[in-house]
Design a protein around this nucleic acid. Sequence first.
DNA 1: CTCCTCATGTAAGGGGTTACATGATTGG
DNA 2: CCAATCATGTAACCCCTTACATGAGGAG
Lengths: 188, 188
Amino acid sequence: MSLRFAVLSLLDIEPGSGYDLKRRFERSVNHFWSASHQQMYRELHKLHSEGLLDCAEELQDGRPDKKVYSLTAAGRTALEAWAAKPAAAQKIRDPFLIQVFAGHHLPPAQMHAELQRHLNEHRATLATYEAQNARFYQRPPEQQQKLWISHQPLLLGIETEKAWIGWAEQLLARLDAEMAEGGETSAG
Amino acid sequence: MSLRFAVLSLLDIEPGSGYDLKRRFERSVNHFWSASHQQMYRELHKLHSEGLLDCAEELQDGRPDKKVYSLTAAGRTALEAWAAKPAAAQKIRDPFLIQVFAGHHLPPAQMHAELQRHLNEHRATLATYEAQNARFYQRPPEQQQKLWISHQPLLLGIETEKAWIGWAEQLLARLDAEMAEGGETSAG
DNA sequence: CTCCTCATGTAAGGGGTTACATGATTGG
DNA sequence: CCAATCATGTAACCCCTTACATGAGGAG
């Protein structure tokens, strides 16, 4: 039920094709939602068949034709109704944490390597978030004021990544200590 | 693919029925994974049919009989193999953030109320996590040492909830300012 | 008498992933 | 020649959610 409203939200800002949407997902809402192109196309067909979207075929030469979707009045109504509807709070759901939970099945050195790999990934996503954030603050002030609420999820993404990184660093330090202890010949 | 290993991890610690597992999920791994009883039963059947679990029917009187599952040698092998297998880092995926992103469709007062509701929920889950954490530190030291790695996901849960709460408080403050400004008759 | 706990399941539908399929244009 | 970009789709499968179904025993 969430994807359709993410799609409606983006098409409300600016109409576009499935292909366009996929890229806009990657560039703008990636920090709280993602979807494959198949999901996009399926959802667009559904929304169109339900009368929430208009579809205009745009013929191009040198390039494949595309279908540009935009909200109908019913689509806008549906979006507004949903925006006001209370939703349940989301909980973490991270497969890697199952691995950590079962971490005693792994030698500390290997656990350390895995964690380090994840830490690098999270540092990289933090960097992209901060770049996006910096770009936001380079926009003209009136745009910043208009878009400030849409910008808030990115700030949460940044804080969450920082929390993850802090946690991983502390865990790595502890694993280092554990390995040093295990590797010692006598002293305790 | 994740549920099966969460199930194997818990049954590796102690065998149990589907019903048992459901409760153990709620009490112990709830901060990073959850599942309904239907998922449990389905997964247990599958794991059993694949030879990763043994099943012993335990007849009880005064209560319904139960099926107690435990790992086979193949199950333990599968669990260990999976524990060593690199997994992709998880990204946030929160429907509420789509609502925030589309927040301009909502009057600030209503947005404020919704946020406050979510904030309360997150504060409540933080409280339960901290209670769980306190209980961990009341265990005997040798258990703490043995289980320290399995305890780490809870620490991440706590940090993540704190980050969420901090973010929401800052957003609420900003919404307050916004509403005060909008409610003023002249001064600005 | 009603609700809760214990204990297991079926069925239907929605959401998401992965693989396969097509076909022109541009860049190295 | 190979790869990437633009652009849309089908098919199969798995995972998750929700609703429905059964039935005994204990607490209020």
